[in-house]
Nucleic acid binder design. Structure first.
Lengths: 116, 116
DNA sequence: ATTTTATCGGTAGTTATATACCGTTTATAT
DNA sequence: ATATAAACGGTATATAACTACCGATAAAAT
């Protein structure tokens, strides 16, 4: 449906909150029960669902309370390892690095500083 | 691979952070460039990647900077609407409710208050 | 239509995160 | 092996989220 990349941060938080809310409702749990299970205040849960600001910890607590941690792996899907890379003894990349004469990406192409 | 439901909140934040980090590395972006693009401080990005605490807003900013918002829709997959429900004029559920004599779930079965 | 209660928004005080620095460690191109 | 800069951890101050309340609104069972 909607193209998330075009949405503002305020809208994105609202979308995420609404999804969590629908997940809770689908499990037939009210806010008080869910908040207790998550170990956060009812207000914090309301703010999360309304997209009014929350912490990553609160979000994870709620996902856990709703038995929906599986979605976590999908937030940041691990980039598929190319078959070729597998063959030639691939290590885990721990750091990004450029050739010595290259400058940072930000210097080459001034970052579009999305303040919103 | 790993069963996320067994992990502590500290570990879950670390897993999420590591996934974001690998996503960034896969796109060959350094922390400074990524933080600038996301509109947050480099330290905030480091804390997020290290699982040391962050806000939902910062997480979304980074996901947006990494062009990885698609995973968001998958966090809380909308429960598939049953074909039957579609037929009989289904509205969007806005609230959970029990029958009048029923008590809250928390009262019936004391919530396992997971403080950690 | 009425009643019940889940959901909602606001506030004051507390706690955690964000920012802007610092110097240090370490992966990796050479 | 060495040099370079990406990544890291710590601190002080500013800003935002969390908690514990309050009363108001409105969805849904009757």
């Amino acid at each position: 449906m909607e193209d998330l990349s075009l949405k503002s941060l305020v809208e994105l938080q609202a979308v995420l909150g609404e999804q969590l809310k629908q997940l809770r409702i689908a499990k037939n749990l009210d806010q008080i029960t869910t908040a207790e299970k998550a170990g956060i205040s009812e207000k914090a849960l309301r703010n999360l669902e309304a997209g009014r600001g929350s912490t990553v910890e609160s979000m994870l607590r709620v996902l856990k309370a709703l038995d929906s941690l599986s979605g976590l792996q999908l937030i940041a899907p691990a980039p598929s390892i190319s078959p070729l890379a597998l063959l030639r003894h691939t290590r885990v990349r721990r750091r990004v690095r450029r050739s010595r004469k290259e400058s940072r990406a930000a210097d080459v192409q001034p970052a579009a500083r999305g303040i919103e």
